[in-house]
Computed example of a mutant assay.
Amino acid sequence: MGQRDEPGDLTGRAFPLGDWGLPAERLDELYRWVERGALETAAWYLADRAWKRRGARVLRGGAAAGAVVGAALPLLDLTGVVGGVAAAWGYLALLLGVACVAGDRYFGMTSGWMRDVATAQAVQRRLQVLQFDWAAESAREVLGPAEGTAGEAAERCLLVLRRFSEDVTELVRAETADWMVEFRTGCAPLGSQVGEGAGGRGLEGAVAQARFGVPSGPGSTRPNMPRQRPPETR
């Protein structure tokens, strides 16, 4: 694992400034700006996934080949099919296979591309929700009757865009935090990074838990405290 650049780390994206004399055009401009940023973020993670997946396949293929060769050569040496140096080459193959496994875990190839896929899919799902929410707000204003004043309608649209931007930022922050933990440890477990698979549900659950805290109520679980023995009466 080495130096890594996040999308927009160095330059960022300037907030578009415009004239609110035409609120509909201004809101449409802001929506395009937010949507473009989400698409760029998802595209960055998908591009980052590509080379990591290739590296993971090479390392995992090397580990499998080393295990097969390392197990086959000593057996052939015992049967006398090959020369006496086959066992030494078998041990070397096993060593190379172990090195491939260690390299995959240390450099985070497999876990990295799985995490990239999870984050990209999570951003795409958020974008789909935004698109339907924005269509609902637009239909509400066109079909009517409009709820409240024009200022309140614009405030609702801005709230939808702000919440979406916060969700995408939180997804990127959570993925970056996982990468930092893996970079420090060198071998973070896969289950804690991808959750329930490449769909990103585990990542979303971690974000929701960090935002809303541990659930409480009749259905929530709580640790069982040991019962204390009542004092004896004399």
Rank of each mutant, 00 (worst) to 15 (best):
P23F: 00
A24Y: 11
E25K: 07
E25M: 05
R26G: 02
L27W: 05
D28C: 01
L30E: 08
Y31M: 10
Y31L: 13
W33K: 01
E35G: 07
E35V: 05
E35N: 11
R36V: 08
R36P: 09
A38Q: 05
L39R: 11
L39M: 13
L39I: 12
L39K: 14
E40Q: 15
E40V: 05
A42G: 08
A42T: 02
A43K: 08
A43M: 09
W44Y: 15
Y45S: 08
Y45Q: 15
Y45M: 08
L46C: 13
L46A: 13
A47W: 05
D48W: 01
D48G: 09
D48I: 00
A50K: 12
A50Q: 15
W51L: 12
W51E: 06
K52P: 00
K52N: 02
K52D: 00
R53C: 08
R57Y: 06
V58H: 07
V58N: 10
L59Q: 03
R60A: 09
R60D: 12
G61P: 01
A64V: 12
A65M: 10
G66D: 05
G66C: 10
A67H: 02
V68R: 14
V68S: 08
V68L: 09
V69W: 00
A71Q: 13
A71G: 10
A72W: 00
L73W: 01
L73F: 07
P74R: 04
P74E: 03
L75E: 07
L76A: 14
D77G: 09
L78R: 14
G80Y: 03
V81K: 04
V81E: 03
G84F: 15
G84P: 14
V85M: 12
A86Y: 11
A87V: 12
A87L: 15
A87S: 10
A87F: 07
A88V: 15
A88H: 11
W89C: 14
G90L: 01
V98N: 03
A99I: 04
A99W: 11
C100N: 00
A102T: 03
G103F: 15
D104V: 02
D104A: 01
R105W: 06
R105P: 08
Y106V: 05
Y106L: 09
G108Y: 04
